[in-house]
């Protein structure tokens, strides 16, 4: 049986780690390579580095960072942010990333998923979805949660899967930064409907939330940022706790 995965996410701006609450109000949280190595040594199963820099210069800085991460860290890592075309994917994989994640670019041009899967294999292609529960149901958002679309979460996730996505990383904007648990009901529905792994994101506040998303949310992995960056939850303690709750984790 595959172990349930714990994934710290590092938001990167101009080469530094930051974390937003509800996608705004950024606080700084340390050097990305050092932080990544510390997480790896504590037992993180994977890392996600998300480039939230908009500028062209920032992109170059991020590519350099990806190379440093690849040289220094011995667990798999995913990079996202600013990946719009196949050549961006190629650049990131060449810099040493194991997987890439695409979000707005995939909604704007879904064929990008097919292209990535055909060129590099489904296993490198994580499709990230930011969605919010509205009066019209779960709706997907673009541009870091700033722009609502007509796309429903479940139909888009299914299409992404059919086009060759290797994993779905679902962030609930209702839950993100609130620290009251993951969107387990929607996550369980995704898991039931999709034939690929689902990563839960948004809402981690305490250890029980991880247990709940692995059991009730049927999530394959859980991603969090601030609870790890600011030491509110330590990964070794979290894993011991999950193990004691009968969840298969790598210790």
């Amino acid at each position: 049986m595959l172990a349930k995965r714990i994934i710290p996410c590092l938001d990167i701006k101009n080469g530094e780690t930051v974390k937003g609450t509800n996608f705004v109000n950024l606080r700084s949280a340390g050097d990305p390579v050092e932080l990544g190595r510390a997480y790896s040594e504590q037992g993180a199963d994977e890392l996600v580095y998300l480039d939230i820099t908009a500028s062209h210069e920032g992109r170059k800085t991020f590519t350099d960072l990806v190379q440093r991460v690849a040289a220094n860290i011995n667990i798999p890592f995913t990079v996202g942010g600013g990946i719009n075309e196949l050549c961006d994917v190629d650049r990131m994989l060449n810099a040493g990333a194991d997987k890439i994640s695409i979000n707005s670019a995939a909604i704007r041009r879904p064929e990008l998923i097919d292209e990535i899967a055909n060129s590099f294999g489904s296993q490198v292609c994580v499709v990230a979805i930011d969605a919010k529960l509205t009066e019209k149901g779960w709706k997907c958002y673009l541009n870091g949660g700033r722009l609502e679309t007509e796309r429903g979460l479940f139909e888009w996730a299914k299409e992404a899967c059919d086009r060759g996505a290797g994993e779905i990383l679902f962030t609930s904007m209702n839950h993100d930064g609130v620290k009251a648990g993951f969107a387990d009901e929607a996550l369980a529905q995704l898991s039931d409907e999709l034939s690929i792994p689902v990563i839960a994101s948004g809402g981690a506040g305490k250890k029980e939330h991880f247990r709940d998303t692995f059991i009730n949310g049927k999530s394959d992995a859980a991603l969090a940022a601030s609870v790890f960056h600011f030491g509110e939850i330590s990964i070794p303690e979290l894993k011991q706790y999950l193990h004691s709750e009968g969840i298969n984790v790598r210790i």
Binding site: A3, D45, S122, Q123, E167, S195, A221, R250
Partner: peptide, 13 residues
């Protein structure tokens, strides 16, 4: 079973 996803991707013992 539905839970057995392919590719097998992740940590196993």
């Amino acid at each position: 079973r539905h839970e057995e996803k392919v590719p097998c991707m992740g940590w196993n013992d």
